[in-house]
């Protein structure tokens, strides 16, 4: 069965990191497609990690001019391959906030794929340390806005609350509390809670309602900034 994992969320929520995780962990790289559909950002994007996908034998579709010195990106026609060809998994990484609009034009294609039996998950990746997603009300408002632009409804939350290189289990904990309320209010499930191994394990050691934790996702840091990889503070 064809599976779509579409990642939507606030700027800085960690969509790209998660997109890389879902793609690189897929059991069959030859039947995995990754689409960088971030039409907003010109820096720090999936396409900066082209080589990782090439090495893993995974096809990556990149907006025209992404990671170049041109600021007007255009959507590549190649995206049609996501619907026309036979894949096990298609991962789509959307741009932050208003960037969700890039998905809108694919609504008819997604509906058709759904009719043909595809499983389509649109996850709202949440980092409650971001000012615009810091309360249940704010994050629900932001989500509604993104859903309208994406022309597709969110199917679940991912708690990826982090403070970049300063993340601790407390960050996931505060994300858990806020997302729990948002999940109760919207009736949407929490699909995953994600973080680096030590942080996630420390969080999971605490008491939680598993319903609002979902599956744990152990992330490796792949979107680090190259120049800081050698400093003690990481990034």
């Amino acid at each position: 069965m064809k599976r779509f994992i579409i990642l939507m969320g606030n700027y800085g929520s960690g969509k790209t990191e998660l997109a890389m995780h879902f793609a690189l962990m897929a059991p069959n790289p030859a039947k995995t497609l990754v689409i960088d559909l971030d039409m907003v950002n010109t820096y720090f994007r999936l396409s900066d990690r082209k080589k990782l996908f090439a090495d893993a034998g995974i096809r990556l579709i990149t907006p025209n001019f992404a990671s170049s010195h041109v600021e007007m990106l255009t959507v590549p026609a190649e995206i049609a391959a996501a619907f026309a060809l036979d894949w096990d998994l298609v991962v789509i990484d959307l741009g932050g906030d208003a960037g969700a609009a890039a998905l809108g034009q694919y609504k008819p294609k997604l509906l058709q794929a759904q009719r043909e039996g595809a499983d389509i998950q649109l996850y709202n990746v949440v980092n409650t340390n971001r000012p615009m997603a810091g309360t249940p009300a704010k994050l629900i408002r932001l989500m509604g806005d993104m859903e309208r632009k994406a022309r597709w409804n969110v199917t679940g939350f991912i708690n990826n609350t982090n403070m970049s290189y300063e993340t601790t289990a407390e960050d996931l904990e505060s994300g858990y509390e806020i997302i729990k309320q948002a999940a109760e209010e919207t009736g949407l499930p929490v699909a995953y809670t994600s973080g680096k191994t030590d942080v996630l394990d420390a969080f999971l050691a605490g008491e939680h309602d598993p319903k609002y934790v979902g599956q744990p996702l152990y992330l490796e840091k792949r979107m680090h900034r190259d120049w800081d990889t050698l400093t003690k503070e990481g990034v």
């Binding site: 010109t42 820096y43 340390n129 403070m163 970049s164 290189y165 900034r225």
Partner: peptide, 9 residues
């Protein structure tokens, strides 16, 4: 540009 574009705590 990097300062304006990057996320930091």
């Amino acid at each position: 540009g990097i300062i304006a574009q990057m996320m930091e705590p």
